[in-house]
Design a protein around this nucleic acid. Structure first.
Lengths: 94, 94
DNA sequence: GAGGTATTTAGAAATTTTTCTAAATACCTC
DNA sequence: GAGGTATTTAGAAAAATTTCTAAATACCTC
């Protein structure tokens, strides 16, 4: 729930790429990992950061763990950013 | 222009607080620094990160350097986030 | 339950980030 | 231009992050 964790999670390129992969739907840890030139342990580490930030949710099925985007936290971040730029008057001349 | 720099800049709590201070208008480096329990050198470091990420602009006036928010980069970040959650169909039940 | 696949955890090394102190730069006023 | 204030730069220490290898856990199938 803290922005610290959320923005920190978003600050790594690998984790942003994982989030982009999950746009189209859920994927298993293994499927995610096979898109990167890194060990499964490293991918697992990144997934744990995203999970702690609640940017993704997991659901286990058989021998796999599937990950999917958690849109609501992304929306909270957008609200924070929107509040940053809104509330100004001298923004109109672009 | 890269999201790496931008999100990294946003990932630090001090820098997010600086951005929030700038919501109301521009402030000098000294004014920003006096709100934190840190040396001016450290504040200068954080400002340099925000500047590199183009989240703030500076304008010099007399003996002061004033900083202000750069809304356009914030908006680019919001677009990226919006694209992440948009494009899904199973987002409606909530 | 034995063996197999999927994923995570632990521990360590390399890199990056954050902060400080001290010194440098810049520009202003007299 | 001398002295003063505002800010940045340099260099170093401490802390956090990212990655790996090796081992552990979890759960599935036969």
């Amino acid at each position: 729930m803290g922005f610290a964790e959320t923005f920190k999670a978003l600050s790594d390129p690998v984790r942003r790429e994982i989030l982009e992969m999950l746009k189209k739907g859920q994927l298993s840890a293994g499927e995610i990992g096979s898109h990167f030139d890194m060990t499964g342990a490293t991918i697992s580490y990144h997934l744990s950061i995203l999970k702690k930030a609640e940017l993704i949710k997991e659901n286990k099925n058989k021998n796999f763990i599937y990950y999917e985007l958690n849109a609501s936290v992304v929306e909270e971040v957008m609200l924070w950013l929107s509040d940053l730029t809104g509330g100004r008057e001298d923004n109109e001349g672009k």
